[in-house]
């Protein structure tokens, strides 16, 4: 079932031909220290793109700056050829799971409904149509039975799936996901992969901050290697090489032998502490 069909008109404003996301010279600094320097790239429509790099490389920062959540000291972000402000409706965002307080008094369905707030404008509240769509999206991530569950009573993986359902409800064309795979169980990991494939099939573009090097080749069409500056960007096959990784991670990759990069090797590098 196509997600775009559920709420008509949501994606109609996209400009034909332009790249879903073109970033030019994006730089961010915290207290004078640059955390992102002159990042320039342009993504192809309908691709799953993994953003890879060591801790502190500025992966989350890049996503937040691209979304205008933190101020950039320079650079330009174009979404389908236009400025971010006019294209917010085309963007879906999955923040890091730890970025919110899961003890907030609300349930899973309510969190998913928050994804509709953008298109509801200033005054309208989610109604029956939005609720039905939200339930639909919850069932897509296998969480239909948990709609009424208080969010603190969900496991980490279930919370992540609620976040993904919320992104689906946003019915966007370009998605940013900040470490959706971090600390999730196997069932959730599988659910996320299925979902990413489904989004790709619908021609959506998904940019995913990712930590597990062992699964990169399996999951992503393109990779973006980042370490404050853009190190490499291109198709996974030609870009995700031992040489490029050594370059991006510097000496920190020494524990990773070439064999584990092949397919689904054990563990992977750069896991969260």
């Amino acid at each position: 079932m196509s997600i775009s069909n559920a709420i008509p008109g949501a994606s109609a404003a996209a400009t034909q031909g332009a790249s879903p996301l073109a970033i030019n010279g994006l730089s961010v600094a915290y207290q004078k220290k640059p955390v992102l320097r002159g990042v320039t790239f342009e993504v192809n429509e309908g691709e799953l793109i993994g953003v890879i790099g060591p801790n502190g490389a500025g992966k989350s920062t890049m996503i937040k700056a691209a979304l205008g959540l933190i101020p950039a000291i320079g650079g330009e972000v174009l979404v389908y050829g236009k400025s971010l402000k006019s294209q917010r409706r085309l963007i879906g965002y999955v923040p890091q799971r730890e970025s919110v307080d899961w003890d907030f008094p609300t349930n899973a369905l309510d969190v998913v409904l928050m994804g509709t707030y953008g298109r509801l404008g200033w005054y309208r509240r989610p109604g029956a149509k939005e609720k039905a769509f939200a339930l639909d999206c919850l069932s897509k991530v296998g969480m239909a039975d948990f709609a009424d569950r208080q969010i603190s009573q969900l496991s980490g993986g279930q919370q992540q799936r609620v976040f993904l359902a919320r992104a689906l409800v946003q019915d966007a064309k370009l998605y940013f996901m900040d470490e959706p795979f971090a600390g999730v169980d196997a069932a959730t990991e599988k659910a996320i992969i299925t979902l990413l494939q489904e989004l790709k099939r619908q021609g959506k573009t998904v940019i995913v901050v990712h930590h597990d090097l062992a699964t990169v080749k399996q999951y992503f069409d393109s990779v973006l290697l980042l370490n404050v500056e853009l190190q490499a960007f291109g198709p996974t096959e030609t870009t995700f090489t031992q040489e490029q990784l050594q370059h991006t991670y510097g000496g920190r990759l020494s524990f990773l032998d070439p064999g584990s990069l092949a397919v689904s090797g054990a563990g992977g590098g750069g896991g969260r502490p």
Binding site: L67, G68, R88, I91, Y93, S99, F104, Y117, G118, Y123
Partner: peptide, 22 residues
């Protein structure tokens, strides 16, 4: 009452609120 959903989202997830233009 008028801006219930905005106050709620700003309290729960200000990053998403900002991302969707609130």
């Amino acid at each position: 009452g008028l801006f219930y959903k905005q106050f709620k989202l700003c309290a729960f997830d200000p990053a998403l609120a900002a991302a969707i233009g609130i």
